[in-house]
C-alpha cells in the first residue's frame, strides 16, 4: 500500500437488507490534505466514516487506514476522531475540561499507565492550540456549544495525531463560532500539517478552506481538488441535492426516517 494516503477505500458497498447506503464508493484522503466530505442528510456520510474507523464492516470493498488494513489497524493514537455526537454527552457529567482532554491520551498511554508531567503539558498545549487554556478547571457542562466543540478537538489533538476525522462537528454551534472553528481547522491543516477529513452537509462554507471535496450521495458524485469542484457546474450540484430533497419528502409522507 502506498504511504501517501491516509485513507484508501476501494469499491466499498454497504447495505442494510436490500437498501444500499453506499454503492461502489472509492475514496482517498491524501496525506496533508483537508478533505471536505459533503452530502445531504442520509447520504451515507456517517456510514462511510464508521467504515473508515472500523466500526462497521462493508459487505464489499476494502479500506486501508494509514496504509494498514483497517480491521488490523492498531495505531489509534495517530487518528483523532470528533464525532457528531460529541456534544450530546450528559451535560451534568462532573468532568473538568482538563480531564476531558486527558481522555485523548488513554490509548496512547496504554493499560495500567499513568500521566506524568509531560502528558499534562501535552494537555495544556492541546488546549492552547484551540484557545481554551483558560478554561482547564471548568466543568465541561458549563461551557457553550462552540467552546465544548473546541475542547473535543483538543481531546482529539492531544495524542498528536497525523490524521483528524470530524463528523459534522458544528451541529448545534452558532454561526459565529462555526466560522471561527473552520479557521481553526484551516490553521491545524496548514501550520500543524495535520491531515483533515471533515464531514458536513453544508457545502458553501467550506470550499475556501478545504483542498479536496468529495460529494457523496450513496455513490460518489465528485471527488477531486477544490478548484475542479468550483467548475463542477451548478446544474450538476442541484441534481445532486435536488434528487435527494425529493427522496426526503417521499420518506416523510410515509412516516419514514
Amino acid at each position: 500500500m502506498t504511504n501517501t494516503n491516509m485513507v484508501d477505500a476501494t469499491n466499498v458497498s454497504f447495505h442494510y437488507g436490500d437498501r444500499y447506503v453506499l454503492e461502489d464508493v472509492s475514496f482517498t484522503v491524501p496525506k496533508g490534505a483537508f478533505v471536505g466530505l459533503v452530502g445531504p442528510n442520509g447520504s451515507g456520510k456517517s456510514t462511510l466514516i464508521k467504515i473508515i474507523l472500523g466500526l462497521l464492516k462493508p459487505q464489499k470493498g476494502q479500506v486501508h487506514l494509514l496504509g494498514n488494513q483497517v480491521n488490523k489497524f492498531q495505531q489509534w493514537s495517530k487518528v483523532g476522531y470528533v464525532s457528531q455526537k460529541a456534544n450530546s454527552f450528559n451535560s451534568g457529567f462532573p468532568a473538568s475540561v482538563f480531564e476531558v482532554v486527558s481522555m485523548g491520551l488513554t490509548s496512547k498511554l496504554g493499560l495500567f499507565k499513568f500521566m506524568n508531567a509531560k502528558h499534562k503539558k501535552a494537555v495544556y498545549d492541546a488546549l492552547a492550540l484551540v484557545g481554551m487554556e483558560a478554561y482547564s478547571d471548568r466543568n465541561i457542562g458549563e461551557l457553550s456549544g462552540g467552546q465544548q466543540q473546541r475542547v473535543f478537538i483538543a481531546r482529539a489533538l492531544v495524542s498528536d495525531p497525523d490524521f483528524l476525522i470530524l463528523d459534522e462537528p458544528t451541529v448545534g454551534v452558532d454561526a459565529g463560532s462555526t466560522s471561527e472553528f473552520y479557521n481553526l481547522l484551516g490553521r491545524l491543516n496548514k501550520e500543524n500539517g495535520i491531515t483533515l477529513l471533515l464531514v458536513t452537509h453544508d457545502i458553501g462554507t467550506i470550499t475556501d478552506k478545504v483542498t479536496h471535496v468529495a460529494c457523496l450521495n450513496r455513490t460518489l458524485h465528485f471527488h477531486g481538488e477544490t478548484e475542479e469542484f468550483e467548475q463542477f457546474n451548478e446544474s450538476d450540484l442541484s441534481d445532486f441535492y435536488g434528487h435527494h430533497v425529493h427522496v426526503l419528502n417521499h420518506d416523510h409522507g410515509h412516516g419514514g426516517v
Partner: peptide, 12 residues
C-alpha cells in the same frame, strides 16, 4: 463512563 462509543473507537 463519559463517552462509551468514543472510548471504544480509541481502542479501549
Amino acid at each position: 463512563s463519559f463517552d462509551e462509543e468514543h472510548a471504544v473507537v480509541s481502542g479501549i
